[in-house]
Structure formats: C-alpha cells, structure tokens
Nucleic acid binder design. Structure first.
Lengths: 147, 147
DNA sequence: TTTGACGTTTACGTAAACGTCAACTAAATC
DNA sequence: GATTTAGTTGACGTTTACGTAAACGTCAAA
C-alpha cells in the first residue's frame, strides 16, 4: 500500500469530499469487518475503485455504505437495499422509466409509512410499561440513584 | 381434530376473548405457515395449550403472535423479540427487578427512537426523489392515467 | 370404509449474511 | 534483509429463520 492518495496511519486525514478511504478505515468507522464490506461489493452494493488489487473508497462510497447500514437497521435485506440504491441512479430520460420510478417510490414510501405506524405503536407500548414501572417505583419511595 | 372448542370450517367462529384458535386458523390470518408458528414455539416465543398433541391457541396467544410479527417487521431478531416479550411478564415484585425492567425499557425506547430517526430520514429522501420525478413528469406534460 | 383435511414429530435442506481461517502479495519499518 | 502491517482471494463454517419431505394419527363426510 503505497498509493499517494492513501493517508498513512499518521496523517489524521482530512474529512473532505476528495478523501479516499481504505477498507480498514471504513470498517473501523462503521464498526463492521472488512469482510462485510467486501461481501457488499460481491453483492453489487458498492463498487470501489482499485489500485492494483487494493480497494479505494471515495466519499461517495462512504456515504453509500452508511446508507446501506441504515437500510439494514430498518430491517431491509441486502437485495432490497440494492434495489433501493438503484432507484437513485436509474435512467430518468424515458417517460416509462420515470413513471416506473415514481410508482416504485410510492410503493416504498407506503411501506415505510406502515413501518412507522408499527414503530410508533411499539414505542407507545414500551413507554406505557416504563411509565407504570416508574409510577410503581415512585410509590415505593423514589430512588435516589436513578439519574 | 374433534375438540368441542375448535370450530369446524363451517362455523364462522366468534371473535371474542374466549375464542380458541387452531394453528391453521392463525396461519391463515397472519399469512404465515403452521411451520413458522411451531418454530416460534420451539424458540420459546409462544406456549399454546395442548389437547393431546394438538395445539390450542387463546386470544392472548393470537395477540402475542401479532406482536411477534410486528417485531419482525421492525427488524428485530426472534431472540430480541423473545427478550422484549419477557419484559411484559417479568416478576415486578422486587425493587431490583423493577429497576432492571425500567433500565431495559429505557434502553429499548432509546433504540427505537434512533430507529425512528433513521426511518424519518429515509422517508424524507424517498419523498424527495418522488417529488423530483413528479415535477419532471409534470414538466413533460401531465400524464392522465397517474391516478 | 376410504378419502381427505388437518394435525403431529423427526429430520434434513436452504438462503442470507456474514465469520474465520489459510495462503499469498506488496509496502513499510526495524 | 527480515519482519511487521495492510491488503488480497478462495474456501469452508455458522447462525438465523424457516421450508420441505416422510411417516404417521384422527376424525368427519361421502
């Protein structure tokens, strides 16, 4: 690894748009293993540049990776995430393509809103439990070390 | 299957709290296979009564099943869901137990709120895309058959 | 009485999403 | 120049969440 663009461990590295990231750097930042990042590449979710065999990640790749992980947290499969990512870069010149894109966006948004309804209800239930417990604790004598 | 409580396919079955459900009934209602329901039982997520070997599900079991599936939609693993379900029925007599329950509720709620922030951002992005596409379509001449 | 719908257990299979070596290369440092 | 450090590619293992098939019991209707 002696590419000029790749910062050594010593140069703290600027966080600008020109930055190039190593796989180890991104894996540290996002708390995943390099294996995971390579796996995402195998699955077609990211396509980093190469210097020889070594992978070079741009700021865009980094953003994309964050996006992927957020999708995962929301419960989407990698296949679904790949499809969603594709929505950002499909060809928007044709009328048919635009309509199809619009349709898929609307479907996805509807799905997300259902998910949010689920989430809100779920949160509500746990807030209730917490409130009950808090009340019970207060009744038994408020505890000092509860922050 | 000749248990008095289990309705035959012909009796439409009342939807009250006394109802007892067969595995097939629940699997139809929730659009999952009986195999899935048995699997959840193996994993300790539901514990239906038995008549001989046949499983009998109460209204409570049915609610619980719905809860499990919602948890899945939100991206939780079965192991996590089991833990969350346990929060509803842990022993709340002891002070320590109450404090622990409170702590775990708070942690979970914080987790859920992070998830909701993720979700909101995600929804926002797709709304943006949809808005752009809509604008582009409008500019090209509003299409009649778009609802 | 047989068919068929529904139930059971046991056991093996599978897809997704990685983890874990092993064996190798290439640059950096001692 | 030997070693350390960071990267690479297979290849196989693992966990999760079920699917699938076999082999069987049970009842109700035809």
């Amino acid at each position: 690894m002696s590419v000029a663009a790749i910062p050594s461990a010593k140069t703290p590295a600027p966080r600008d748009a020109q930055r190039i990231y190593s796989i180890a750097e991104l894996s540290r930042e996002f708390a995943i293993t390099p294996r995971t990042i390579r796996f995402y590449e195998d699955e077609g979710l990211i396509k980093p540049r190469r210097h020889g065999t070594t992978r070079l990640y741009t700021a865009g790749d980094r953003t994309r990776l964050g996006w992927i992980l957020r999708g995962k947290r929301l419960g989407f499969s990698l296949a679904e995430i790949r499809e969603l990512l594709d929505l950002y870069q499909v060809d928007r010149t044709g009328l048919q393509q635009l309509r199809e894109l619009q349709r898929r966006c609307q479907l996805h948004i509807a799905d997300l809103e259902r998910k949010r309804a689920d989430l809100d209800q779920h949160i509500g239930e746990f807030r209730d439990v917490e409130a009950q417990v808090s009340a019970e604790l207060k009744q038994r004598g408020v505890d000092p070390e509860s922050t």
